[in-house]
């Protein structure tokens, strides 16, 4: 009996210890240096980005994680707006596929949008954005779905005939292998011919993140080099 009580006390102790550790090191900014090494951000930028992350992740539930509602709220200042693109972007950020974004997922994904990120990273991300079914190629039906959804979201009106003709012309240009789909190589070539297709893939804000969130210096754990 005494041994049993001793066991329970030990278990409680371990649990309390775990809770204490969690409180001392809230999940999120565990090792800014690792993230800085593996992304285009400096340590200071990672820490400033964490200030943004804390703001967004506490908007609805203050749990140190960003759910889809908080992501939409930050993007559009309303969680009511329906956006196929915002959904796609969230899903691509959510590399653990658990419906929520941790800081690491958030920072790694935003790194692609940094002005200094490699163009190939931006091209690959944009390809994934349009590859709705994640089959490794963009199908005509996926393009149509995106065109129809984005036109509806923006209140633009184009007849089905016009949409079909735009998609026909797009595939004539992009689908150089004539197999009815756009693969990564064809997408790469199309983007080279039309660099404007990547215009939403660069966020100038990321260059000034440390001045936008100067409060990171109060929480900084590491001296930047």
């Amino acid at each position: 009996m005494l041994q049993c009580l001793e066991g329970v006390r030990h278990l409680c102790g371990v649990l309390l210890k775990c809770c204490h550790i969690d409180l001392k090191h809230p999940k999120g900014l565990e090792d800014p240096e690792v993230l800085a090494r593996e992304t285009v951000f400096s340590v200071s930028e990672v820490e400033a980005l964490y200030e943004l992350f804390k703001k967004i992740s506490s908007a609805v539930i203050d749990d140190g994680l960003i759910n889809k509602e908080e992501f939409q709220l930050a993007l559009f200042k309303t969680s009511k707006k329906e956006s196929l693109f915002a959904d796609r972007v969230f899903d691509l950020f959510d590399t653990k596929h658990n419906g929520i974004l941790g800081f690491e997922e958030f920072a790694r994904a935003l790194s692609v949008f940094h002005p200094s990120a490699a163009p190939d990273e931006k091209i690959n991300f944009s390809f994934q954005l349009y590859d709705l079914k994640q089959q490794g190629f963009i199908e005509r039906q996926e393009v149509k779905q995106m065109v129809v959804a984005t036109l509806a979201e923006s209140g633009m009106n184009l007849s089905d005939e016009v949409i079909e003709s735009i998609i026909d012309k797009t595939f004539e240009e992009a689908d150089t292998k004539h197999d009815g789909k756009i693969d990564k190589e064809e997408w790469h070539n199309l983007v080279q011919r039309h660099p404007s297709l990547l215009k939403n893939m660069t966020l100038q804000y990321l260059k000034d993140i440390t001045t936008t969130f100067p409060s990171f210096v109060f929480h900084s754990q590491v001296a930047d080099t």
Binding site: S83, V147, S165, I166, S196, N200, Y205
Partner: peptide
């Protein structure tokens, strides 16, 4: 160019123009 009519755009340019895919909202108050 910004004044390109929708008929001259390819589907992806049209999507880019019509969609609200602009993550800068994340940084704005």
């Amino acid at each position: 160019p910004g004044d390109k009519s929708t008929h001259q755009m390819n589907a992806f340019q049209l999507i880019g123009m019509a969609s609200s895919l602009d993550l800068s909202g994340l940084f704005e108050e």
